[in-house]
């Protein structure tokens, strides 16, 4: 692996992106094809093409198949890609501005804050802002949790890698406890749905709602990509970054807000899906090196593919039941975390 990174100026990026896109497309097709009702790959793309331009292909499949492919599995797979890409990019960016290889929206309590906000909207306040209520309150919760974690880490002087994560986990516990109180106090008929949503799941994806995560992701991803040079500088150190002309405190805050925005909207639509942000950037760095101009797009690609596959596993291991996808990513991510700890102590 080390050899792969050491190839230096790295002309391999276009090739990596091309290969990654091919894998992504293949994974997307497979994710739509696989399920309780298997649909042939040909039908998947015929439905897609027919939707893009009606009448292009003569319909040889049932209306039921069409509904499964277009109304259920396509939006679900697209949401999986966005959530995976988004959380991976958030993790990568947080790792740079905290100089902490363990930073992750889940471990830093940002996901818990989003969940708290979303539960508040789902069970208590009602949708007073329409469809945007849940994502907006999730974003507010994410921002609140971020502020608390930053304050705690400052008060407890826990800016080192391991102690920042401890501060995040501690805050995460407290917020989850508060969120559970909200569930406990909520309408018992609705709590079942909410508890399942919290374990992480993409089953609620609908075409009409995909626009929200898409817009947030597109804007934040573009901004982060534009700042990739500054993210590189932040990995060297706060003071050095500031001597390079970067307004360090303001920049770190902006990255946290962008991270809270992405995490908030993703949690609102998919519940808590942990460890993607921790794991994927490390894999990306092994493949393309440490320059954020490559780490960010690579993380987005790998995160999207990873979550498509996690969802395939979640839908098939206990078919016809859907296993909450958070269980799958938690299991894989937890093992990865242990491996990472072992590797770090070995260095």
């Amino acid at each position: 692996m080390r050899e792969a990174i050491s190839r230096g100026a790295w002309g391999g990026m276009p090739l990596f992106l091309l290969g990654g896109l091919a894998v992504l497309l293949a994974s997307l097709s497979l994710a739509i094809s696989v399920g309780a009702v298997p649909v042939p790959l040909g039908t998947v793309w015929s439905v897609f093409l027919n939707r893009l331009s009606p009448g292009l292909i003569e319909q040889s499949w049932s209306q039921g198949r069409e509904a499964i492919v277009w109304d259920i599995r396509f939006p679900r797979a697209l949401l999986a890609m966005m959530v995976g890409a988004g959380l991976a990019m958030v993790g990568a960016s947080l790792q740079a501005v905290t100089r902490n290889p363990l930073a992750d929206p889940h471990l830093l309590g940002i996901s818990s804050g989003s969940a708290f906000g979303a539960i508040l909207a789902l069970l208590h306040t009602g949708l007073f802002l329409g469809l945007l209520t849940v994502p907006l309150l999730a974003f507010a919760g994410a921002l609140g949790a971020t502020a608390i974690v930053l304050a705690v880490s400052r008060i407890a002087d826990a800016t080192s890698a391991d102690r920042l994560v401890l501060a995040g986990v501690a805050v995460s516990f407290i917020i989850m406890a508060a969120a559970n109180v909200l569930i406990f106090l909520g309408d018992p008929r609705a709590t079942h749905v909410v508890v399942f949503w919290m374990l992480g799941g993409l089953g609620l994806a609908q075409w009409a709602q995909l626009i929200y995560p898409l817009v947030v992701l597109a804007i934040c991803a573009a901004w982060l990509m534009g700042r990739s040079g500054d993210l590189n500088a932040m990995t060297v150190g706060d003071e050095t970054a500031s001597t390079l002309g970067i307004p360090v405190a303001r920049f770190r805050l902006a990255v946290f807000v962008a991270g809270a925005l992405i995490t908030g909207v993703m949690v609102a639509f998919s519940g808590i899906i942990g460890f993607v942000g921790l794991m994927v950037p490390h894999v990306a760095r092994m493949l393309v090196g440490g320059d954020y101009r490559r780490v960010l797009p690579a993380s987005a690609l790998i995160g999207a593919v990873f979550l498509l596959w996690a969802d395939i596993v979640a839908r098939t291991v206990m078919a016809p039941e859907d296993l909450p996808i958070g269980i799958v990513t938690g299991l894989i991510g937890g093992v990865f975390f242990v491996w990472l700890l072992g590797r770090r102590s070995a260095v």
């Binding site: 990174i5 050491s6 230096g8 100026a9 790792q95 740079a96 100089r99 902490n100 290889p101 890698a161 040079g229 500054d230 590189n232 500088a233 990995t235 060297v236 150190g237 706060d238 003071e239 050095t240 001597t243 390079l244 002309g245 970067i246 760095r285 092994m286 090196g289 440490g290 320059d291 260095v347």
Partner: peptide
């Protein structure tokens, strides 16, 4: 400025670190 901060290992190469000077 050349400070005593030690960069954490984020897999940046020597060339990439030096390129930061152009920021």
């Amino acid at each position: 400025a050349v400070l005593q901060e030690q960069p954490s290992d984020f897999a940046l190469t020597v060339g990439e670190i030096v390129a930061l000077g152009r920021t």
